[in-house]
């Protein structure tokens, strides 16, 4: 019963997405963007914590493709590790990640999300690893907002995939999931 409800909801969301996407007709008019984002960073095996980041985007082919470089910060705080196992796996709880991704946006002005793929350097507690990045999201320009056509909002969800070794363990594949939403300035 629960599965049936979930399937109906997911199907409904997808149909709405496609329908709303087909009803829009506008495109980006700017080539560059800067954005500030916040959200949640779920580090694999650790806790989910607040995320903050800054991004630069360069749009080409009418906004259907864009290149994006980003820098984001979070941490590795985990209640389970702190309260139950009482272990410290890294020298520090700091976490930051820098990403270079290329994105394909089938309909920049519609509701269908863009797809991104690229690479990231993920620094967890002072140790850097090379990661692949997959994700999807949306840029939403808001013309006229605050008297300008250069502002918008953006949101996306990304999976940073990398091989990790902790305390001489065998390497295992980790998925760090990042959801972020923020404001975007086009220029």
């Amino acid at each position: 019963m629960k599965r049936g409800r979930i399937s109906v909801v997911i199907a409904g969301v997808l149909m709405l997405w496609v329908f709303l996407g087909s009803s829009a007709s506008a495109q980006f008019r700017y080539q560059n963007s800067l954005s500030l984002s916040t959200g949640a960073y779920a580090a694999s095996g650790f806790g989910t914590n607040l995320y903050g980041g800054v991004r630069y985007g360069y749009f080409f082919y009418g906004g259907r493709y864009f290149f994006e470089a980003s820098l984001g910060f979070s941490n590795l705080k985990s209640r389970v590790l702190e309260n139950v196992s009482k272990t410290q796996l890294f020298e520090t709880e700091r976490l930051f990640a820098y990403e270079f991704v290329v994105a394909y946006d089938y309909n920049p002005s519609g509701a269908i999300p863009f797809l991104v793929f690229g690479v990231a350097g993920v620094n967890q507690g002072g140790t850097s690893v090379f990661a692949g990045v997959l994700g999807l999201g949306k840029h939403i320009p808001i013309p006229g907002f605050l008297g300008t056509n250069q502002l918008g909002i953006r949101y996306d969800i990304r999976d940073q995939i990398f091989s990790q070794t902790i305390n001489n363990s065998d390497p295992f594949i980790s998925h760090n999931i990042v959801f972020s939403i923020g404001v975007q300035f086009y220029f």
Binding site: A26, K138, P143
Partner: peptide
């Protein structure tokens, strides 16, 4: 998703 469609209507091509 709805916001992306509604707000982007006013942006020129």
């Amino acid at each position: 998703a709805a916001a992306s469609s509604v707000f982007s209507q006013g942006v020129d091509s």
